[in-house]
Design a protein around this nucleic acid. Structure first.
Lengths: 220, 220
DNA sequence: TAAAATGTTATGGCTAACCTTATTATTCCA
DNA sequence: TGGAATAATAAGGTTAGCCATAACATTTTA
């Protein structure tokens, strides 16, 4: 009574590839880190996915999706983000938990359910974390933004999306008001990869650089 | 990014126990048949579930749920049937596919999603197949009915529920109008475990005894 | 340019849930 | 009561996706 013609693990790898930048070459290390597996395991799995024609691996360089992989990946991400919308707007699930809970559902969703869900939700274009939802045909307009970690002191930016996935990181950002739509001013950037000091609403917030990478912003 | 503290397989065994009669002693053979595994595999798995205290197995007699197992099982069935309601009423998924599609989702549903879903749906008491939905506290009022296979010639009965799970069986019954609420008259019962001849609406329908076991009816 | 960091490959191990084949035990029924 | 049906047990095999450890290759960077 299950459906996966693509395993849960495969879906996680594909999703990670999209989240780390749809068209980027991603190192095995980064992939392993995001998926919480050892580099050795990621290497094995990347070989399997390569054998299935979903991605290409250039040794010592990194991994990128093939056309087939990109299509499959967009489909996975579509399901993920549609469920996030449903959980948020209709079930009123806590924002920080959306990714994790939607992730489980995503793996269990047949194509006809995906499309019926999209129709039910009114074909939303963005998920509650601000990320675009790929269309049914696989088309995907990426966000026109950059990570907050690249912003310079004095800049004022607007949060487009939060790209984090783990509940604890999302909760941390939420508690500090770092949510889509929020305007942020960069007050200070500590040297040696140190944290940013931000003005978020009325509050001053210190944010580590690695967390700031998860926050996608545009000039405002 | 998954949740199962109880494996998918465990959930399927528990669900099967409920579907084969919440308080019945079920033989390994029947369990194996419904789950589409060999009796040897079912035996192994039953031992594992016994070790976890979910059910008790009396050799050569059969299997029954413990209190702990019953609670877990009701929870699984609750999730399953709530999703059936959602898929049917909000996503307009084909009736015959509900069980299978809801089954996948069920395994991927965290408790907080279950309860939010129940609230969203207005705490429904029955699934689209006519089966009762266990309450959040585990209480479960079973149907007051019996299998159509036990009906005698000349009886007129009303379908309370369809207990089948596979899409092909559900489709077969649906095509013949055998759905909850339908009134059926038993015209004939062939000897030697032969099929029943039924009057369903305007049509005469022949139905094998093993299929008739899936149809729960009451006197009407 | 050498050391550090990163990536690759090899080997072996683990787990859950299935499988087959074969043997033995029990229960049911005629 | 004896054979058929059903159930239990034993032994060994498979798969996916992980793990660790260790050796080796390449790339980056100081």
């Amino acid at each position: 009574m299950s459906l996966p013609q693509m395993s849960e693990s495969t879906e996680m790898y594909l999703k990670a590839m999209v989240e780390l930048g749809l068209s980027n070459v991603v190192s095995i290390g980064r992939l392993a880190e995001r998926l919480n597996v050892t580099p050795v395991s990621a290497n094995e799995m990347v070989r399997r996915l390569g054998d299935q024609g979903l991605l290409t691996h250039t040794p010592y360089k990194g991994v990128s999706l093939t056309d087939k992989g990109r299509e499959a990946a967009c489909n996975v991400v579509r399901r993920q983000r549609l469920w996030e919308v449903f959980l948020y707007e209709h079930l009123h699930i806590e924002w920080a938990k959306l990714y994790e809970l939607a992730c489980s559902l995503e793996h269990a969703t047949a194509p006809e359910v995906t499309e019926a869900l999209a129709a039910f939700l009114g074909d939303p274009k963005f998920c509650p974390r601000g990320n675009p939802i790929p269309a049914a045909d696989g088309s995907f307009l990426p966000l026109d933004g950059r990570p907050l970690s690249t912003a310079s002191v004095g800049e004022t930016v607007e949060v487009l999306a939060v790209n984090a996935t783990t509940t604890d990181v999302l909760k941390y950002l939420q508690e500090r008001g770092i949510l889509p739509g929020q305007t942020i001013r960069v007050l200070e950037a500590a040297p040696l990869q140190g944290p940013l000091t931000l003005k978020v609403g009325e509050k001053e917030v210190a944010l580590g650089l690695s967390l700031a990478e998860f926050v996608i912003v545009k000039n405002s």
